[in-house]
Design a protein around this nucleic acid. Sequence first.
RNA 1: GGCCCCAUCGUCUAGCGGUCUAGGACACCAGGUUCUCAUCCUGGUAACUUGGGUUCGAGUCCCAAUGGGGUCACCA
Length: 436
Amino acid sequence: MTKVRTRFAPSPTGFLHIGGLRTALYAYALAKHDGGDFILRIEDTDQKRQVEGATQALQETLKKFGLIWDEFYVQSERQEKGIYKKAAEKLVKEGHAFYCQCKPKNAKDEGFSNELRDPCRDKGLTSGAIKLRVPDGKIVSYTDFVHKKEISWNTDTVYDATLLKSDGFPTYHLAVAVDDLDMKVTHILRGHDWLPSTPIHLLVFDYIGEKRPEIGHVTDILSAETGKKLSKRRDSVFVEKFLEQGYLPEALLNFVMLLGWAPKDNRELFTLPEFVEHFDINGFQEANPRFLTDKLDWFNGHYIRQKSDEELLDLLKSFIPENADEEKLKRVIPLIKDRIKKLSDFESFAGFFFEKETVDLKLFGKNYKKHLEKALDAIEKSIPLDQVPKDNNFKVGDFFMDLRIAVTGSKFTPPINESIEILGKEETLSRLRRVI
RNA sequence: GGCCCCAUCGUCUAGCGGUCUAGGACACCAGGUUCUCAUCCUGGUAACUUGGGUUCGAGUCCCAAUGGGGUCACCA
């Protein structure tokens, strides 16, 4: 039994897509579950789409999730060695490809034709781009390990795809086959959007190597709003953005994991090592899921509550005022831990500890002045608040609510007694006096 | 339009011919704990797209229709 080797092969065009994170996670687990290798390969063969620093950012993000690769490759570096060109030329020599000097087609162009067979295929040219000579009337098929079934095409529906561009760079179709063979990848796991071009890859694999890798296509993630594939323009899809909002990597990972995969026992909570341990290749989902973040919020709250106060203090660093007193923070954290769903919620629940919030008088009940005076008096004399004198229509709940509003400016806050204790007597008194 | 994939509660899903009057989780609703909000605990509403087969028996197998998605570049 050969060792399982998988790869994640993004193109460095920007931030990490949420679907990319999921594909990387599955590829990682697929390899690691069997003690295999996980490869990171940067697919930067389109020079026009390069984004400065994207590769490094991608690596940083992957590391935050614990998706550590065993090997690292960059296609443009491999291209410089001429390996793709050599492969393409070999295909021409063997009659499986041909040179073409047509003007590149573009689906958006005027007069675009869907002609499958290229006019240059029998011209015998000796330079230009190199295209695949797709055979007529053949059936190509493979067994998809996500769908667990054979999928096939008649080559009469497959077009003569470009393998090597006129700038000498390979297209994805060539590079993927050359690299996966070279790197001895055993399982290709990629998005469902690649399924339609699979027959091209199947042909190339068969022409340049003896044995092709297993291939599986994970579902596309659909937008909750539109029901269509997630769009970078409309939907929030970038992992880095979620991190900025205060989602924890373990929550994001756990959420995304269950969008396209499920265990037999329907367990929901998995850390990365647990997922690797329980991973089962038969657990892949075949129907496209919708990206609703309700459950992500729940996971995030769960993982926040799993953290120790010390860990939370550290995580909260980028969500709190710069000059915040650390001792005070340490006392506040246990009070908000059960209340926040995202780290960024800290501000709305605990902001009042660090600055005086303005108070909207409309929030108060009708007896608020009386309530606040009682509170003021009790605090000045250091009498516990639940022992304030209660006259006729005194309602404990109303009393505490008015006090809460006066001190915090909000109706939804941590317990008021503890909060006052942290704020201190003087600060609390001054907050009460300003609204009486 | 051609080609391809898919179809169980609002959402993520379990189910791989009888144990399904279909289970879990999130969300939602109700109740309990409680000075608010939350956490936590109880309970509840809610789904097999339709039509044909196969079979003693179908959510589970087959076919079709319908619906949804993807893709048709010298982009990945």
